[in-house]
Amino acid sequence: MPEQLSVPHPPVGGERPAPADRHPDDPPGDGSPQPDGVDRGTLRLALTVGGLVLAVLLGFGLGRASPGPDARTGATPAGATAAGSTSGGEHSHAPGTGAHQHGSAVAGQPDPAAADGLSVSASGYTLAPVSADLTAGRAGEFRFQIRDERRRPVTRFAIVHDKPLHLIVVRRDLTGYQHLHPAMAPDGTWSVPLTLAEPGVWRAYADFTAVADDGRQTPATLGVDLAAPGDYRPRPLPAPTTTTTVDGFTVGYRGVPEVGTAVPLAFTVRTGDTPAALERYLGAYGHLVALREGDLGYLHVHPEPAPAGDAVTFWLTASGPGRYRLYFDFQVAGVVRTAEFTVTVS
């Protein structure tokens, strides 16, 4: 009997067979609906978009629920634990952070070359003195608040270099430098014992990183003048030098600061010909504040994590030409001392 050929039945309703390379879940090539009445391509697109929206919402919620160090400053909110922190307090920068300089925030980004402390308000925060009745040569107290844009006292601060706030006080002729750490009351009022040794106008700098309600961290340095009534006789700045003595220690530095360029300044501390046994102070082997003569522009610089040999190295970027006074804090045998230098930046 002759062999019969198998002929495929024609599509029902005029449908064409699906191409061999089409996935069964793909929509028909002619756009006709599936038997269940749903266009599967549209369904898959809706599911994909819905999944993306859900992922974004979950990521936002997790980010708010688990605030970590600020990506820009590395600071950790007060009460949180910073990675690599010491028992004496938390360091706001990630372990291994090199030398760095704090500068003014411009368009949301810090400018390390900009001088700070020139204004009582900046970055949405205001330094508001509560009481500052000070008499030259007598122990007094300075009380103040940091207020936000809504005039509310700020009570949340990041731990930066072991402290939530650093207060620098100096007379306008750049004498009488003090590095203090006030205490904050629950209502956001800071207080610190303060003695202004001589009459004159003094500048107080509050150096801090505020934590907003949404967890956003903003570094700022605000400045305000304090008055000690009396006969103000400003002293001229000492001549520039690269060595000085403090309580029997010989302190020196190498390097020449430049405008707009980070330059290494290497400080050494010796007793005779022997390098001093420097200790950590506020999480580092030294701190450096530079104040510019005239407007008293403020630069706060921190060193490399560990000394290189017997030298503590800072990378300083001068904010403009002029004369600066450098204040180098160091600790030996539990005692903090400050070496001061005058430097001319051209």
Rank of each mutant, 00 (worst) to 15 (best):
P19R: 01
G37L: 07
A311E: 10
V106Q: 13
A99W: 14
G252M: 01
S32E: 12
S191W: 00
S66H: 08
G84S: 06
V169Y: 00
E304V: 05
P27K: 00
D213N: 09
L52R: 01
V289N: 05
A220E: 07
D116P: 06
T250Q: 14
G188C: 04
V256Q: 08
E198L: 09
T175Q: 08
A128H: 14
R280W: 04
A71R: 05
H302S: 07
E258I: 02
V160Y: 15
E15I: 04
G255C: 09
S319T: 05
D26Q: 13
V269I: 02
D225H: 09
T313I: 05
H93G: 09
A128Y: 14
D30F: 11
P199W: 10
V169L: 04
I146L: 14
T342E: 09
L282N: 04
L127G: 06
Q331Y: 02
A20T: 02
R147P: 15
T317K: 08
H91T: 02
H300P: 15
H179W: 10
L127D: 09
L226W: 04
A113T: 04
A308C: 04
V53C: 11
A83Y: 06
T135W: 12
A82S: 15
V269M: 06
R152S: 03
A107G: 02
S131F: 08
S191R: 08
R270P: 13
L43M: 02
P10I: 00
A339T: 03
H161T: 07
G50H: 06
H9S: 03
P110A: 08
H287Y: 15
A114H: 07
A115F: 14
V259Q: 13
P193F: 11
R64M: 06
H161K: 14
L118P: 15
R325G: 00
D26E: 15
A239V: 05
R152K: 01
L118C: 04
D273S: 12
S87P: 15
G74Y: 13
E15H: 12
G68S: 03
G294C: 00
S319D: 14
L180F: 14
G137Y: 09
A55Y: 05
T218Y: 02
R172G: 09
A55W: 07
T243K: 07
L52H: 04
T242A: 06
I146R: 10
A113Q: 10
A284S: 14
A83P: 13
E198Y: 00
P264Y: 01
L54E: 12
G29L: 09
P164L: 01
Y285N: 06
A197L: 14
D213H: 11
P2H: 07
T135I: 09
D273F: 13
D207N: 08
G63P: 11
T48Y: 15
T261G: 05
A94E: 13
F267E: 13
A333V: 00
E90C: 10
V263T: 03
G41E: 12
T81L: 13
V269N: 06
G309M: 05
G14V: 03
G286W: 00
T250D: 15
A105T: 05
A82I: 09
A46Y: 14
F314M: 05
H181E: 02
R337D: 12
R138V: 04
A18R: 03
A99Y: 14
T42S: 08
H91P: 15
R203M: 10
V251F: 09
V336W: 12
